[in-house]
């Protein structure tokens, strides 16, 4: 077994990972013979002890501080949500209704404007009396029919 492989197996074993028993025996045997690998395995353990000592003391953040902050954020979000709803109901919906009404008015005006002029009205516009206009209109219809 070479040093690289031995170090990998020794690290995994020191870290509590599963390693093949036979590979571990071979890695240990290698380390017994190899000063560098022996030292490598020892260093992992030494470092672990040192790091454990260095980080052993810490102050947990108080639970009430966390919950106060959480409540604060939660209330702020609820207020923002209520504000959004107010904007939707007070501003956006009325604006949409007004826009729709305006659009309908414009559309209906345009539809009325492009209505074709009836034949009777056409004759009236040309200066015929209403009786003449009706007569001419019927005559025109009949001639189309023939």
């Amino acid at each position: 077994m070479n040093c690289k492989k031995a170090k990998t197996i020794l690290s995994r074993h020191a870290d509590g990972e599963r390693v093949d028993d036979r590979a571990l025996v071979l890695a240990r045997a290698h380390a017994e013979e190899c000063a560098e690998c022996f030292r490598f395995a020892g260093d992992i353990r030494n470092m672990r002890v040192r790091i454990g000592d260095a980080y052993g003391h810490y102050a947990p953040v108080p639970a009430d501080r966390i919950m106060r902050a959480v409540r604060c954020v939660s209330e702020a979000r609820e207020e923002a949500s209520r504000r959004r709803e107010r904007i939707v109901f007070n501003d956006i919906i009325p604006a949409m209704v007004a826009t729709t009404i305006l659009a309908l008015v414009i559309l209906s005006v345009n539809v009325l404007r492009v209505q074709p002029v009836s034949p009777v009205k056409g004759y009236l516009l040309q200066g015929f009396t209403s009786g003449e206009a009706i007569y001419l209109s019927h005559a025109a219809d009949n001639s189309h029919g023939e």
Partner: peptide, 10 residues
């Protein structure tokens, strides 16, 4: 810090 502190166990 680590020198001279080799643990004799593998």
């Amino acid at each position: 810090l680590l020198d001279g502190e080799v643990i004799d166990e593998l």
